[in-house]
Simulated assay, not measured.
Amino acid sequence: MQSKHLRFGKGFRPAFTVRKVQAAEMVLAPGACEGGPDNAHRGTDQWLFVVSGTGLAIVDGARRRLRAGSLLVIERGERHEIRNTGRTPLRTLNVYAPPAYDAEGEPLPAGRPPRASRKG
């Protein structure tokens, strides 16, 4: 079993990886965005759950409003951008299957597992 208390500080941080699934926390300041028209995960699906705040997801041109409790699935290869449209930080929990980032938050090549998992 692995366990970790997520702080949802600033930016993007992988929490830990277990076999073929990875969890990460992301915090976007008001007005900030992550991703863009050319951003896509070639080899992984991303499940994004909004913990708090409001925002906008643009996935392959389709727009979806985000708010606390929203769950969005971005399938592998879909171009996407996440924007904070509110006045408070947008805090999300992201699950990647298979893992998309190494322990420092750098993207992994498609189909490559991270070297070591982080235990909390």
Rank of each mutant, 00 (worst) to 15 (best):
residue 1 M to T: 07
residue 3 S to F: 05
residue 4 K to Y: 04
residue 4 K to M: 06
residue 7 R to F: 04
residue 8 F to T: 01
residue 9 G to R: 11
residue 9 G to A: 09
residue 9 G to L: 11
residue 10 K to L: 05
residue 11 G to M: 03
residue 11 G to A: 11
residue 11 G to I: 05
residue 12 F to Y: 11
residue 13 R to C: 03
residue 14 P to A: 00
residue 17 T to Y: 06
residue 20 K to P: 00
residue 22 Q to C: 08
residue 22 Q to M: 10
residue 23 A to K: 00
residue 23 A to Q: 05
residue 24 A to E: 07
residue 25 E to C: 02
residue 26 M to Q: 10
residue 29 A to F: 03
residue 32 A to P: 12
residue 33 C to L: 13
residue 33 C to P: 00
residue 36 G to T: 09
residue 38 D to W: 10
residue 39 N to W: 07
residue 41 H to S: 04
residue 42 R to L: 13
residue 43 G to Q: 13
residue 43 G to I: 13
residue 44 T to Y: 05
residue 44 T to H: 11
residue 45 D to S: 02
residue 47 W to G: 02
residue 47 W to N: 00
residue 47 W to Q: 01
residue 49 F to N: 02
residue 49 F to G: 00
residue 51 V to S: 08
residue 51 V to Q: 08
residue 52 S to K: 10
residue 52 S to V: 01
residue 52 S to Q: 13
residue 53 G to I: 02
residue 53 G to Q: 07
residue 53 G to N: 04
residue 54 T to I: 07
residue 54 T to K: 13
residue 56 L to A: 07
residue 57 A to E: 10
residue 57 A to M: 15
residue 58 I to L: 08
residue 59 V to E: 14
residue 61 G to C: 02
residue 61 G to S: 08
residue 62 A to I: 11
residue 63 R to K: 12
residue 64 R to W: 03
residue 65 R to C: 04
residue 66 L to V: 05
residue 68 A to T: 07
residue 69 G to F: 13
residue 71 L to N: 12
residue 72 L to N: 00
residue 73 V to H: 08
residue 76 R to I: 03
residue 79 R to P: 00
residue 79 R to S: 10
residue 82 I to E: 00
residue 86 G to N: 10
residue 86 G to Y: 11
residue 87 R to W: 03
residue 88 T to H: 14
residue 90 L to A: 01
residue 91 R to M: 03
residue 91 R to G: 01
residue 93 L to V: 01
residue 93 L to S: 09
residue 93 L to I: 00
residue 94 N to D: 11
residue 94 N to G: 04
residue 94 N to E: 10
residue 94 N to H: 12
residue 95 V to A: 03
residue 97 A to E: 12
residue 97 A to I: 06
residue 97 A to F: 10
residue 97 A to D: 07
residue 98 P to S: 06
residue 99 P to V: 05
residue 99 P to R: 12
residue 100 A to P: 12
residue 102 D to Y: 14
residue 105 G to A: 07
residue 105 G to F: 12
residue 105 G to T: 09
residue 105 G to M: 06
residue 107 P to M: 09
residue 108 L to T: 14
residue 109 P to N: 02
residue 109 P to Q: 02
residue 109 P to M: 01
residue 114 P to M: 07
residue 116 A to I: 02
residue 116 A to T: 09
residue 116 A to M: 04
residue 116 A to Q: 11
residue 118 R to I: 09
residue 118 R to M: 05
residue 119 K to P: 00
residue 120 G to Q: 02
